[in-house]
Design a protein around this nucleic acid. Structure first.
Lengths: 199, 199
DNA sequence: GAAGCTAATTAACAAAAGATAATTTTCGCT
DNA sequence: AGCGAAAATTATCTTTTGTTAATTAGCTTC
C-alpha cells in the first residue's frame, strides 16, 4: 500500500507536470522510510552526509550549540516539510547544526546526490525539486520578513494564530529561541498578552 | 561583445554541467538589459509581473510600507545576486513589497515563465536554476540564523566586516531596518563600538 | 503519593531598544 | 560658498529584553 506522503508528493508532481503516479518509479525507488524516536538525533554537528528528508509525521528541531555551551534553536520543521542540512547540501561543508526529533518522527529519506542523478536522467521530475526549493525560499523569507516587520510579541501571536498545534506540542523554550528571545522574555510576553486579555 | 554578467552565468553553467558558452543561446536569447536610475522603482506594490533579474551593477532595496505609513527595508540586493518578487513568483500573488534602485542599477532581466518554458525544452540548463534557488535559500537562512544567534550589535559588526563596501554605499537607516532595529538604535550601537574602540 | 527533574514563572536589577524631539552633520544643488 | 533637505546623532524618558537566581508548576518514575 502506498503511504500517504508518497501519494502527496505524486499528486504534487502530477499537478505540476502531468506525470502520472504510475510513472514515478525511478523517483521513489531510492527513497527509504525512517523512524526516529523522541529525542533521537538525525544529523549531528560535523556530519557530511548529503541527505534530504520529507517529514511524514512529527516535529524536528534544528539547533546550534553556542560557545557558551547552551543551545539555540534556529527553527522547527514539521509534517510535509523537507529537512536537510543546508551546510552539506548547499554549502558543501560539514553540518554546523544538530537535527533532533522532538517527538517520534517518520521521514521519507533520499540521498541528495542520487536524487540529482535521477533528475538528470528524468528531467520530467525536475519541477518537483523546483517546487520545494521555491517553497523553502518562501518559508525562509517569511521568517526574515517577520523579524524585520514584527515585534517578538507580534511574532509569537502570529505563530499561535497560525500554528497553535505546533506551539502546543513544543516546549516554550524552543519557541522562544526561534522567535529570537529568551524563555524568560517569552514568559513575560505571554503574561502581558494574558493580562491584556482580562483587561 | 559579451557582457561580464553573461560571461559569469555561462561560466557557472559550464562549471555545473559542462554546457559550453556557445551553446547557451536559447537561455540568453530572452534576457534583456535594463537600466534603472537612482531612486527608480523596479517593482511596485500590487505588481503581478513574474520577472526575474540578475543584478549586474548597483544596489536594490526591498521595502514595505507599514500601516503607520513609514517604510521598513527588508533587505538589500547587490551585484551578482538575483532579485525578484517572491510574492509573484513563489506565491502567485501581487507583490507586497517595493523594489527600488538605491544607485544607478543595471539588470539582466528575464520573464520567469518564459525561462520556465526554455528550461523544459532544454533541461541541460536546469542546474543553473537549481544553483541559484539553492543560493537564495542559503542567503535567506543565513539571515534567519543571524537573527536567532546574534545581537543587533553583532549583526552590524558582521555586516561591516563582510560587506563594508555595501555599508558604505547605503544610508544607515536602511541598514538599521534590515538588521531589525531603528536608526536611533543603530546610531547608539555605532557609538558603543566606537567608545569601546578608543577604550 | 513522594522524590526528582525539567520547564515555566516570577523577582530584581542592568542593559538595550523604542519613541519623540531637538540638534548637529552631511550632502546635493544652485 | 551657501541654502535647504535629509540623515545622523544626541537627549530624555518609557518600555522591553537580558541576566541571574529563586520559586512554582508539571511530569515521570519508583
Amino acid at each position: 500500500m502506498t503511504p500517504a506522503s508518497i501519494d502527496l508528493l505524486q499528486s504534487i508532481l502530477h499537478h505540476l507536470t502531468g506525470v502520472l503516479p504510475g510513472d514515478t518509479g525511478p523517483l521513489f525507488a531510492l527513497t527509504r522510510r525512517l523512524h526516529l524516536e523522541e529525542g533521537e538525533v538525525y544529523i549531528r554537528e560535523g556530519d557530511t552526509a548529503r541527505k534530504l528528508a520529507f517529514i511524514e509525521k512529527g516535529i524536528m528541531r534544528v539547533y546550534a550549540i553556542k560557545q557558551s555551551g547552551d543551545e539555540a534553536t534556529l527553527f522547527l520543521r514539521w509534517e510535509e516539510q523537507f529537512i536537510a542540512s543546508h551546510d552539506t547540501i548547499i554549502h558543501q561543508q560539514p553540518a554546523r547544526f544538530i537535527y533532533r526529533a522532538l517527538e517520534r518522527v517518520t521521514l521519507l529519506e533520499i540521498d541528495y546526490d542520487k536524487l540529482d542523478t535521477i533528475l538528470r536522467e528524468h528531467p520530467q521530475f525536475e519541477p518537483l525539486r523546483v517546487h520545494f526549493l521555491q517553497r523553502m525560499i518562501g518559508e525562509a523569507l517569511k521568517v526574515v520578513e517577520d523579524f524585520v516587520l514584527l515585534s517578538p510579541e507580534e511574532r509569537y501571536l502570529q505563530l499561535v494564530e497560525k500554528r497553535s498545534d505546533i506551539v502546543n506540542r513544543v516546549s516554550d523554550k524552543y519557541i522562544a529561541s526561534m522567535l529570537g528571545v529568551t524563555p524568560v522574555s517569552l514568559s513575560r510576553i505571554r503574561k502581558r498578552i494574558y493580562d491584556r486579555g482580562k483587561k
